[in-house]
Amino acid sequence: MSVDDAIIDRIASRLLSAPPALAEARNLVPDWTPPQPFDRPPVAAAVLIAIVARPEGHTVLYTERSPDLRSHSGQVAFPGGKIDPEDVDAADAALREAHEEVGMERADATVLGYMPTYYTGTNYLITPVVATVTPSRPFVPNPGEVHSVFEVPLARILSAASYGHFRFERGGQRGQTWQIDHDGHRIWGITANLTRLFRDLAYDEAAA
């Protein structure tokens, strides 16, 4: 068994076997506090943390969102989006979005499990779905949603030295997220925070 395989097995053993129940809004604490409280329930969403098998080793898949999108344009993200009524569960939604965004075939993915939900200051309640992927064809970005697709070596994701901090100001409030720079891409915000939580899961650590 390779080092990557051993780490993936350890991650899988620490994931939830089913999508976590969605907590009531009054019990949720967002990653940053918006200036005004929300007057609507959180939007259920799912993202796919895809561990991609490559000849040189495993990688983690990211997308760069289209600059034409109204929300989070140009930012780095995991494949994913809102859970539609037609989706069976969070995994179904995440795999559907991955197919729509980058052409990932469902049959190429094996869902390992789920991370705890993550509540954003934009009122999205995200379920991270972790899967291994053996791609049968190249990932191709859907130009209506995705500007580019790139992968970061799993070893880099798992190294604590890869992480810095990104500071921002929004709605008059200052905040901070994790940040990872890789090959000209800056990963920050929700995606970096989820990446760090994924990394800490491998080592049974709590993100600082």
Rank of each mutant, 00 (worst) to 15 (best):
residue 106 R to S: 13
residue 64 E to Y: 02
residue 81 G to A: 11
residue 61 L to V: 01
residue 89 D to S: 05
residue 83 I to G: 04
residue 79 P to Q: 08
residue 92 D to W: 07
residue 63 T to L: 10
residue 64 E to Q: 12
residue 61 L to S: 04
residue 76 V to G: 14
residue 76 V to Y: 08
residue 91 A to S: 15
residue 105 E to R: 12
residue 64 E to G: 14
residue 104 M to D: 05
residue 76 V to A: 14
residue 96 R to M: 12
residue 83 I to A: 08
residue 91 A to D: 14
residue 66 S to R: 00
residue 87 D to W: 08
residue 97 E to N: 11
residue 65 R to D: 10
residue 61 L to C: 04
residue 106 R to M: 04
residue 104 M to G: 07
residue 100 E to A: 14
residue 106 R to D: 05
residue 99 H to M: 13
residue 70 R to A: 15
residue 73 S to H: 09
residue 96 R to H: 13
residue 89 D to F: 08
residue 98 A to N: 02
residue 96 R to T: 15
residue 67 P to G: 11
residue 89 D to K: 04
residue 82 K to G: 04
residue 79 P to Y: 06
residue 62 Y to F: 15
residue 73 S to E: 12
residue 97 E to V: 08
residue 83 I to S: 03
residue 87 D to S: 14
residue 83 I to T: 04
residue 80 G to S: 11
residue 98 A to L: 04
residue 91 A to Q: 09
residue 95 L to W: 00
residue 62 Y to M: 10
residue 75 Q to I: 01
residue 94 A to I: 08
residue 70 R to K: 10
residue 61 L to I: 06
residue 67 P to A: 06
residue 94 A to T: 06
residue 69 L to P: 07
residue 70 R to S: 14
residue 99 H to C: 13
residue 100 E to Q: 12
residue 77 A to E: 13
residue 106 R to L: 07
residue 86 E to R: 07
residue 75 Q to G: 00
residue 78 F to K: 05
residue 94 A to C: 10
residue 87 D to V: 01
residue 65 R to S: 09
residue 80 G to P: 04
residue 62 Y to E: 03
residue 67 P to I: 09
residue 95 L to R: 01
residue 92 D to M: 09
residue 64 E to I: 04
residue 74 G to S: 12
residue 93 A to T: 00
residue 85 P to T: 00
residue 67 P to F: 07
residue 97 E to P: 01
residue 62 Y to G: 06
residue 84 D to E: 15
residue 72 H to T: 06
residue 106 R to E: 12
residue 94 A to S: 12
residue 82 K to E: 15
residue 61 L to M: 09
residue 105 E to V: 06
residue 71 S to M: 09
residue 90 A to F: 10
residue 84 D to G: 07
residue 66 S to E: 00
residue 102 V to Q: 07
residue 100 E to M: 09
residue 97 E to W: 13
residue 106 R to H: 08
residue 74 G to M: 05
residue 99 H to R: 11
residue 83 I to Y: 05
residue 77 A to D: 14
residue 79 P to D: 12
residue 86 E to S: 10
residue 68 D to I: 11
residue 68 D to S: 14
residue 67 P to Q: 05
residue 67 P to S: 08
residue 61 L to F: 04
residue 87 D to Y: 10
residue 102 V to I: 15
residue 104 M to P: 04
residue 86 E to D: 08
residue 85 P to V: 01
residue 105 E to Q: 13
residue 63 T to H: 05
residue 71 S to W: 06
residue 70 R to Y: 08
residue 66 S to F: 06
residue 69 L to Q: 03
residue 81 G to S: 07
residue 60 V to W: 10
residue 70 R to E: 12
residue 68 D to N: 13
residue 96 R to G: 15
residue 82 K to D: 15
residue 80 G to V: 01
residue 66 S to Q: 03
residue 77 A to I: 00
residue 93 A to I: 03
residue 105 E to K: 09
residue 66 S to L: 02
residue 71 S to C: 07
residue 98 A to V: 10
residue 95 L to F: 03
residue 102 V to Y: 03
residue 100 E to F: 06
residue 94 A to L: 01
residue 69 L to H: 03
residue 75 Q to L: 11
residue 96 R to S: 15
residue 81 G to H: 07
residue 73 S to F: 08
residue 98 A to F: 02
residue 80 G to K: 04
residue 65 R to G: 14
residue 103 G to M: 02
residue 66 S to H: 01
residue 103 G to A: 05
residue 106 R to I: 02
residue 87 D to L: 12
residue 101 E to V: 02
residue 102 V to P: 05
residue 101 E to M: 13
residue 66 S to W: 01
residue 79 P to I: 08
residue 85 P to Q: 03
residue 73 S to T: 02
residue 83 I to C: 14
residue 83 I to L: 11
